[in-house]
């Protein structure tokens, strides 16, 4: 019998012969068994404000103990983390940080949550899963920033221990996903629906890249889909693009483009639309009812928080999110 295995973690579904490496560079077939090469070996370890992920409706003003390993399931041409996402684990300098150590560090740095972020946490699924399980026991929350390119079964399994997810919805066309990211849109949309079904706190990030995905019609379509399938309460972050990796010949997104995207989202019924990667009044959270500033942010710093027990201090409207 051939010792061929198929990875069932993400829609890439790599079929690997002995010794072969998966597309995400972190999995290998050794003698007919599939192994992860990055368990407990993160190369990026930082303590970041939760706003940096970005999570705006999840424990504002706290810090997240953030980890990532090498590798990614996609290959976006604009990746700002390409030095880890597009390299092999053995080409990076790593820390030895098993799950227990992640928890003890998170506690030592007084982080309210652990964030699986920077690259694509799906590639270190086993490490993330074990860490999340241990963190739950210590009452540390688990968040991930992901591209949502993951199969249903692993995602539902992880959801038991996950508290919040920020999913990159990179564009609303299959063309963009196949030409710029080397993936497909459909699985990402499926993941969004699954996360909502599982009751995970969900926020969405859309990086607006000039000329590639800034078409107003497509943005409107995307916002309608979000309202329709995920509801009006999912916060939507429009991020400013900066030239990175291979897309170095496009300019930063004009501010008007971001502002009009945000307006499109609000018009489509999204209740919380933000502008990110730039200081703007649309970094603040406004009460959808009385329109007052509820959470005032500059950069990653929360200057004022008027959400009390999940409600607007001024008009008592319930504000969706995880507040304590």
């Amino acid at each position: 019998m051939e010792k061929i295995v198929q990875c069932e973690l993400c829609p890439n579904g790599c079929i690997l012969g002995p010794g072969q490496r998966s597309r995400c560079r972190t999995r290998t077939n050794s003698d007919g068994k599939l192994y992860s090469l990055v368990y407990g070996r993160p190369c990026a370890v930082h303590v970041d404000p939760i706003e940096k992920k970005p999570f705006f409706h999840f424990l504002p003003g706290t810090t997240a103990f953030s980890i990532a390993t090498a590798g990614c399931v996609l290959a976006c041409k604009f990746c700002q983390n390409w030095q880890i996402s597009q390299s092999k684990p053995e080409d990076t300098d790593t820390y030895d940080l098993p799950p227990a150590k992640v928890i003890s560090n998170a506690l030592a740095y007084r982080c309210a949550s652990i964030a699986y972020t920077y690259t694509e946490p799906t590639v270190f699924y086993e490490y993330m899963y074990d860490t999340a399980l241990a963190a739950r026991k210590e009452r540390v929350k688990n968040t991930m920033h992901s591209c949502g390119y993951i199969n249903e079964r692993p995602l539902r399994t992880l959801s038991k221990y996950l508290d919040a997810a920020n999913i990159d919805l990179k564009a609303f066309t299959e063309d963009f996903y196949s030409n710029v990211c080397g993936g497909r849109l459909k699985p990402v949309l499926d993941s969004l629906v699954i996360l909502k079904e599982e009751g995970i706190w969900l926020e969405i990030t859309n990086l607006v890249i000039p000329t590639l995905n800034d078409d107003a019609k497509k943005i409107r379509e995307m916002c309608r889909w979000i309202v329709d399938k995920l509801g009006r309460d999912v916060p939507l972050h429009f991020s400013r693009f900066f030239p990175h990796y291979r897309l170095t010949n496009l300019p930063p997104t004009p501010i008007e483009t971001l502002e009009s995207a945000r307006k499109t989202a609000l018009d489509a019924g999204v209740r919380f639309a933000y502008i990110g990667n730039i200081r703007h009044e649309a970094e603040n959270t406004y009460c959808p009812n009385c329109k007052k500033v509820l959470i005032e942010r500059t950069g990653y710093v929360v200057k004022g928080n008027h959400v009390v027990n999940g409600k607007c201090r001024y008009c008592n409207t319930a504000i969706p999110g995880v507040w304590n």
């Binding site: 930082h46 700002q80 983390n81 880890i84 080409d91 990076t92």
Partner: peptide
């Protein structure tokens, strides 16, 4: 600049 990790 980089974010997360500075490659070799």
């Amino acid at each position: 600049s980089s974010s997360g990790y500075m490659g070799r």
